[in-house]
Design a binder for these strands. Sequence first.
DNA 1: CATGATGATTCCGT
DNA 2: ACGGAATCATCATG
Length: 350
Amino acid sequence: MDEQARIMQALGGVSLAGHSVQGGMALPPPHGHDGTDGDGRKQDIGDILHQIMTITDQSLDEAQAKKHGLNCHRMKPALFSVLCEIKEKTGLSIRGAQEEDPPDPQLMRLDNMLLAEGVSGPEKGGGSAAAAAAAAAAGGSPADNSIEHSDYRAKLSQIRQIYHTELEKYEQACNEFTTHVMNLLREQSRTRPISPKEIERMVSIIHRKFSSIQMQLKQSTCEAVMILRSRFLDARRKRRNFSKQATEILNEYFYSHLSNPYPSEEAKEELAKKCSITVSQVSNWFGNKRIRYKKNIGKFQEEANLYAAKTAVTAAHAVAAAVQNSQTNSPTTPNSGKACYTLEEMCNMK
DNA sequence: CATGATGATTCCGT
DNA sequence: ACGGAATCATCATG
């Protein structure tokens, strides 16, 4: 509805005149010749809309009859040639006005962003593009707890769906309106001279107007995505402590490698897998742990002793099990939920 | 609700 | 790119 009004405004007198000719209705001439007096123009549009709404079959029939009368009038050819002459004089100024417009940088930016967010682009491609974009924007760490993540994806696909249906709606409306206007102009061309170039120009005006509406849609879609993203990031920021088991595993590694608490990439991956957290979380944990341990070794002494004892017991168990295994060739003993140490690791334990 | 613990982020140097 | 340091924001506890 709003769009229609805006488009009519954009089209200025032409489409309105079109209505008046086709309908044969006595519409008031547009007061706002140059569109500067917004209020007056608004009032006009209100009037026009009202008149359109009150069109009846009867009035249409009357209009048709009037139109036919005009077309058959004996003075019509003369009138037509006069109009041609007038047009010849004034038409030149309209021509080379503004032609090809360069691609709007803002529109391109919006397009790029929508593409990057996975809103436009391939339809429902597993959402991988969106997921990748979100993960990348969130600091490169791969997706972690999938609850919030799937929530994000659901919301994003919702936005995408709305965006696409709206876009399609606009597209359709644009096409309908274009054909409508073209029909009007063709109809009018029987009464007054209209060159194909003018029709082309009208069409391009309509398209420009619609694309500006589309830009608004794109803009608001971008805003929605940004808001969603920021919420998602906030949600990510809401930290949850690691599970007791996970911290145990991490502490065991830390205190058993106290002389060099820098796990390699593989070790980090292993720890991440064991703790069901991400590698970057492992890195964070060790970063925090190292600095905090170093800052106050005394405070961590108890913990260190605890884990030293723990690993010693585990190691003893592991050794015992290993010895037993090698001696009796019994089936592998369950490692009682504890970390499974490699020989190399056991050698590092003092 | 004050306080410490803790996971994440940021800045900076290498 | 990685780690140290400082800092932020939230959790957990008494």
